[in-house]
Design a binder for these strands. Structure first.
Length: 259
DNA sequence: ATGACACGCCGAGCGTGA
């Protein structure tokens, strides 16, 4: 029997600005693995100590101001790799792969895309295709693999608060859906959709539109897994509570529990 | 239709996010 495993994914929009929120949340919930995105801090300045004091190993892959990911693990990491496995370095720090308890866990901050048709949008599409190629080269769909993070794509109409309004807009275009489907076709399942089929569950709410209060959000933070982990997945929840705290991240924590 | 907030940049507006 494998050891139970809880994995949290949270785009914190700066770990230094959100340190109190994250520490409070971890103190109360203590997930086994914590995948943070948009840490926005150089590795040498990452606030490691308070997390170590909560019993976590701290693994970081960051840079100045833009992007950045970090993965905290209660158990000892068996393997750690930042960035793409091979080839040209990425433009920004967006990938951290950590193997824990025999499970390969990818922590992703997928490029936002900025605007349709621009260079950043092409980068987003190419980035997701490159990730699929990396999975083909380094993993198998029969091994325990979990991919979490901010995907910056709402998969279908249930995942946006106003589907008609979002058709063809950034985060909800055919091109983005196509590259996401290509990634999933490696042999992944959207763990949230194993358990919940209705819409209205979101992971991000716009600061500017009072989105949280109106429950007008998007589900763009995801947990994907291969079959051995799909079998073990008991639930995926979006915890809205920290979004109501003082000066919150615009994303909420997403927690997946595996038996 | 557009912009709305929040962040880090080092010291002010600006680029970026989604």
């Amino acid at each position: 029997m494998p050891t139970p495993l809880s994995i949290m994914s949270w785009n914190v929009n700066s770990i230094r600005a959100r340190l109190d929120h994250v520490l409070t949340y971890l103190y109360d919930n203590a997930p086994d693995v914590v995948c943070l995105q948009e840490t926005k801090v150089e590795d040498k300045l990452f606030p490691r100590v308070p997390f170590m004091e909560l019993g976590y190993e701290v693994h970081v892959h960051g840079g100045k101001a833009l992007a950045g990911v970090a993965t905290l693990t209660k158990a000892k990491a068996e393997e750690v790799r930042g960035g793409f496995a091979e080839g040209e370095p990425d433009r920004h720090p967006r990938i951290l792969m950590v193997r824990v308890q025999g499970v390969r866990i990818y922590n992703l901050y997928v490029p936002n895309g900025t605007e349709l048709g621009g260079d950043a949008f092409a980068y987003k599409l190419a980035w997701l295709r490159r990730l699929r190629a990396e999975l083909d080269a380094t993993c198998s769909p029969t091994e325990p693999l979990v991919i979490v993070g901010d995907f910056n794509i709402a998969p279908d109409e249930r995942d946006v608060f106003d589907a008609e309004r979002f058709v063809g807009r950034l985060l909800f275009t055919d091109e983005e859906h196509e590259v996401l489907a290509n990634l999933v076709a490696f042999g992944l399942r959207d763990c949230f959709r194993l358990h919940v089929s209705e819409g209205g569950h979101y992971s991000w709410y716009d600061y500017r539109t009072n989105g949280f209060e109106l429950n007008e959000g998007l589900r763009i933070d995801h947990v994907y897994a291969t079959a051995p982990m799909v079998e073990r997945c008991e639930e995926v929840i979006h915890d809205r509570k920290p979004r109501s705290w003082e000066v919150p991240s615009d994303h909420v924590p997403v927690i997946a529990r595996f038996s």
